[in-house]
Simulated scan of single mutants.
Amino acid sequence: MEVALFKGIRQEILKELDQAQTHIRAAVAWFTNWDLFDKLCEQASAGKRVELIVIDDFINNGDWGLDFQRFIDLGGHLYYGDPHHPMHHKFCVVDDHTLFNGSYNWTYYAESKNVENTIKVKGNQPLIKQFIEEFDALREKLEKRDTAIKRDFNNLSLIDLFSVRNYLAFDLLSRGQQERSLKPVEVATRTLPKNSIIEQAYRRLTEEVIRKKTITNLGVKAVVNGVQDRLFVQIPKGEQVPFEHTHYFRTVHDNQTKVSVETYKGQYEDCKYNEKIGSFLVADLPKKPAEQTGVHITFSLDKDGILKVVATNADTGGSMEVIYDVEALVF
């Protein structure tokens, strides 16, 4: 079976990667897509043999790119192509019986900007065997990496013969638009300054992000209605950001001098079923009867999903502040 794919290529590759039983071979010149990367990491972590060959350049190894070290640490086999003979392949073989081959790089740029194609092949073993042999021949000439390369954006040459800056900038723009995230688009504006398309997209996305809402409840572990270890919600799910809320928490024991401020996200009343974000200790409360002192706790969540938690001593006015950069807090 051979099928030509012109749309939905990423979804089709993801489906086959998800069904892999033993072995994945991928040789792709440029690789920036986190969905495909996370699937490779998942399969490597599950004990599948996952082999990946990519080019070593700023598109793949820039300091904003994929975490190839995580792939290695999870058991993935990473190889960088020969710099003197750049590998321009874009093919993947799954379990020796499914092949994807075409123009499609595993990037946001390829998916969102370019017109691409890939052919999916199943059952044509003579053809698939040729691609396996090509992959194995490439791999045998390369060194398996124990440490991934990370390249500093500031070292990207201003002499850009192969339009790396252009590709990087629009790949990051496409990623930011797809994920509704400002961070990749901010990097795109630095990668390709004064580009009117990117500047306009950044302004539009900024306006949209300002209207983002929280995706889950945010709060602290507390005694609620006499029950311990409950989630006291400081910022409810669905609140438009930026948002800020302060609540006064009183001590529950006589002469209590310490309060642990434990921050959680989730939808459950019982904190053990929610996800802990972090904690810190306020340890300078005066010795007083229960409920006669305490802390004011303020939650501030901005449009980029940055959460600031401030605990202020009700008696002294002293405060402690912790900032959490937690993904998937807003949408």
Results as ranks from 00 to 15, higher is better:
residue 326 V to D: 06
residue 71 F to P: 00
residue 72 I to W: 02
residue 108 Y to V: 12
residue 179 E to P: 00
residue 280 F to E: 11
residue 267 Q to P: 09
residue 268 Y to P: 06
residue 270 D to K: 13
residue 314 A to R: 13
residue 43 Q to Y: 06
residue 320 M to K: 13
residue 190 R to N: 12
residue 50 V to G: 00
residue 168 L to W: 08
residue 85 H to R: 12
residue 34 W to Q: 05
residue 158 L to W: 15
residue 8 G to T: 03
residue 112 S to C: 14
residue 221 K to T: 13
residue 16 E to R: 09
residue 287 K to T: 11
residue 264 Y to H: 11
residue 32 T to I: 04
residue 198 I to R: 03
residue 186 E to L: 12
residue 299 F to N: 05
residue 119 I to T: 10
residue 100 F to T: 05
residue 102 G to L: 04
residue 165 R to S: 04
residue 106 W to Y: 14
residue 113 K to I: 14
residue 198 I to V: 13
residue 89 H to N: 14
residue 180 R to G: 10
residue 118 T to I: 09
residue 134 E to N: 11
residue 135 F to A: 08
residue 293 T to G: 07
residue 187 V to H: 13
residue 118 T to S: 11
residue 265 K to R: 13
residue 290 A to F: 05
residue 206 T to F: 10
residue 25 R to E: 09
residue 107 T to G: 03
residue 186 E to C: 12
residue 328 A to W: 10
residue 173 L to Y: 01
residue 201 A to E: 12
residue 227 V to D: 13
residue 199 E to L: 13
residue 206 T to W: 09
residue 108 Y to D: 08
residue 118 T to K: 08
residue 284 D to S: 04
residue 281 L to I: 15
residue 20 A to F: 02
residue 283 A to P: 05
residue 10 R to N: 06
residue 200 Q to M: 13
residue 54 V to I: 15
residue 91 F to L: 03
residue 215 I to V: 11
residue 256 Q to I: 08
residue 195 N to Q: 05
residue 47 G to Y: 03
residue 238 G to E: 09
residue 121 V to T: 14
residue 304 D to G: 09
residue 31 F to S: 00
residue 316 T to M: 04
residue 236 P to Q: 15
residue 233 V to G: 01
residue 3 V to N: 15
residue 159 I to M: 14
residue 194 K to M: 10
residue 128 I to Y: 04
residue 148 A to V: 02
residue 56 D to F: 01
residue 94 V to R: 01
residue 173 L to R: 00
residue 151 R to Q: 11
residue 15 K to S: 07
residue 317 G to W: 02
residue 2 E to C: 13
residue 159 I to K: 15
residue 285 L to H: 04
residue 144 K to W: 04
residue 105 N to W: 01
residue 175 R to N: 01
residue 154 N to E: 14
residue 284 D to K: 11
residue 99 L to Q: 03
residue 143 E to A: 12
residue 182 L to C: 02
residue 185 V to T: 03
residue 312 T to C: 12
residue 104 Y to E: 11
residue 283 A to D: 15
residue 203 R to T: 09
residue 179 E to V: 05
residue 89 H to C: 12
residue 311 A to D: 05
residue 61 N to E: 08
residue 13 I to M: 13
residue 197 I to T: 15
residue 14 L to Y: 03
